[in-house]
Amino acid sequence: MAMLEVRNISKSFGSNKVLKDISFNVEKGEVLAIIGPSGSGKSTLLRCINQLERADGGTIKVCGLDMLVKNERGKTVYAPPDKLREIRLKIGLVFQNFNLFPHMNVLRNVTEAPIRVLKQKKSSAEGYAMKLLSQMGLYDKSEAYPCELSGGQQQRVSIARALALDPEMLFFDEPTSALDPELTGEILKVIRKLADDGMTMVIVTHEMAFARDVADHVIFMENGVIADEGTPEQLFGANASERTKQFLQRY
């Protein structure tokens, strides 16, 4: 069963068509990388699946649950709020700018949602959070505040925060774009490790070498459509389309 089924998604901001007829699947354990020039709609696509934007048309299924469907009259409608909430819990999202909560220390950033949303006991939420933080190499930073951490450390906290809700899938929206080049490596290592552990992931990225290395499937987006897609070997190989080659030349 596909973890994520996206069919014919479209989205406009005013007269600007950002997404046109996008369809793809993500299987369990698969790592999908989405690449493409700025403004091609990559982030909007992620945000539509994460309910941070509302898609105008198409259908989305997450873990077999209908999130966006066409009703009898052919209108595109979202699932009822409680269903949307259930679906949202299945997907974790890591932002480009981390968006950590600055007034909470690292530990509380990670435990806030499990305690408030999943109604977990504080002690068990903290136990699990500490486990995640050690996996991220941040065991000794649990009492620190986000402003005291480097960008790479902040991004690792935000990955731990997303994992704390035990999502089925993890989305990354340009996770290294706000980082110094020296710090991108530590984030890519963490994502690499998650991929090895079998985490299903969708990664919007400008790190071509990384996409090639870690992804099972790559989508190249341009002007709101999927311009090219395939395995990394296909897209980064000699048989890629002219446009893909042209785009990749810059990296």
Binding site: L52, R88, L89, A113, R116, V117
Partner: peptide, 16 residues
């Protein structure tokens, strides 16, 4: 805006 989005992505309600 990112603070609202981070909370929403963590399934927190508007009141929370």
């Amino acid at each position: 805006k990112g603070q609202y989005e981070a909370a929403a992505a963590l399934s927190m309600t508007k009141t929370q």
